[in-house]
Design a protein around this nucleic acid. Sequence first.
DNA 1: AGCAAACTCAAAGTTGCCTCAAAGTTATCT
DNA 2: AGATAACTTTGAGGCAACTTTGAGTTTGCT
Lengths: 231, 231
Amino acid sequence: MNDRMILVVDDEYELLEMVKSIFERAGFTQVLTASSGEAALKMCKEQMPDMMILDVMMPGMDGFAILKELRKTSKIPVLMLTARGEAEDKFMGFENGADDYLLKPFLPKELLFRVQAILKRVYPEKERKVFLDAATVDLEKAIVQRNGEIISLTAKEFQLFEKLYENAGRIVTTGSLCQAICGDFWQGYESTLATHIRHLREKIEENPSKPVALVTIKGIGYRLNIKGAQT
Amino acid sequence: MNDRMILVVDDEYELLEMVKSIFERAGFTQVLTASSGEAALKMCKEQMPDMMILDVMMPGMDGFAILKELRKTSKIPVLMLTARGEAEDKFMGFENGADDYLLKPFLPKELLFRVQAILKRVYPEKERKVFLDAATVDLEKAIVQRNGEIISLTAKEFQLFEKLYENAGRIVTTGSLCQAICGDFWQGYESTLATHIRHLREKIEENPSKPVALVTIKGIGYRLNIKGAQT
DNA sequence: AGCAAACTCAAAGTTGCCTCAAAGTTATCT
DNA sequence: AGATAACTTTGAGGCAACTTTGAGTTTGCT
C-alpha cells in the first residue's frame, strides 16, 4: 500500500532488521538499509528515498555528522533514533534539521505513527477517499460519512476495511481477513471476524442485513465493491 | 509559514549557509544572502527584505559601517552577530540602530527566537486564532474565549494545545504529546498527560466529558478538530 | 517567608472495544 | 424438500485504556 521509499541507517544489524521488518509489516514495500554514514549518503544520492530513519550513535560518522552532510544536498525528512545518554545532543539534531526524534527503546507503533505523520506532512496526498454505494470512507482519518453523518471506525474495523480495500472488487478469503486483524495465529477467530464484519456493515451499509458494498461470498470470504471501478 | 524576506550578511560561507538553512527549516521561504557590505546594501535596495542578519566582523566594510550606511536610507530591523571579543562594540551597534545582537556561537533556536520576536514587534501580525467547536484559542496570548469568558492557558496546557494544533485533524500519539510537554524522558508521564488533557478540555469544551474538539483515539492518542477544515 | 497557582501522580471509577458463544437465518447439495 | 454447513445477529463478560478526583509537591510571585 505505502510505496514511499524509506532508508534505515544503523550500524547494528539487529536493530536494522527490526526496524525494516516493522515497516515491511506495515505495508511499506521499499525499505532500504545502510550500516554506515558513507553508505547512507551514497544511497541517498542514488536511490533518492523519501525519508530516512537515522540512529545517532554509530561508530565513525555519527548521526549528527551524517545529517549535517546530508543537509548540504538534500531536504528529505529525517527521524533520528537516540539512546538515553544522548539526550541533550538531540536538540542539536532538531536544530540541524531533523524532523523528529525518538528515544530508544521505542514501540513499533510509535515509530510507525511518527513516520507516517512526517510523510503526510511533507508529501501531502490528495484525500484518500473510498466511495461506496451508501457511504464514503476516509482512509486518512478512519471515518465514514453516511447521510451527512460522521462515524468513526474502530481499530479492527479499520484494519478490516483496509484489507478489503486493497483487494477491492476481488474476493478476500476469511483467513486472509483474520490474519490482517489478529495476526498469524488466527485459527478460531472466524466468529469474531463475523462480528467485526457486522459492525463494519452497520457503519457503511444502508441496510446491514442486505449488504451491497461488503458482500459475502459463501464458502470463501468477502468482497468489497467500490464505486468508479467495477468488474 | 513565514514568508518574510530575510537577508543574511556574512563573509564566511559556512556560517552563511548554516544561518540560511536554519531559517529555511523553520519555514522561511525567502532567505537571501550577501557576502560583502556592498552586495548587502545593493540587495537591500533592490529586494527590500523585511529583516537583516548582520555579522560584525567582516573584511572591508564591517558590520557597523554597513549598518551606519544602511540607516541613511532604511529602517528595516537588523540583528547583529558578534564574536566574544567584540562584546563592548555591541553598544555601538545598539546605538547605531541595531534591533538586537547575538553572541557567537549561538544556538539556532536562540537566533530563530530573537528574529521572530523582532519580526512580531516590527510587523505586528493579525491575530493567530484557532476556532473550535465551542471556543476560540488565541495562540499569541495563550488564552481561550468561550461564552464571552476569557480563560488563560497554563504553560503545559498551551504546549499541549500547540502540538495538537500543529497536527490539527490528524492523530497525535500519546508519546508525541508527552514529549512535547515534558521533554525526552516521558515514559511514565502518560497519567499526567491525561490530567492536562482534562484541564484543557475543561477550558475549550462545552462539556469536557463529551469532547468534540479534542477527541480521544483509543489506543493511539488524541486528535484536535478545528473549524474551517473538516470533512 | 508565605501564599497561590500550577504541576505531578496515584487510585478509583468508567467506558467502550473486543471476544466468544448461542440462537437464528440463508444458501447449497442431494 | 430436507439436511447440512456456512453465515448472521445478538448479547453478555472481560479487560485494557481512558477519565476523573484529590492530595501532595513544586514553582513563582509579592
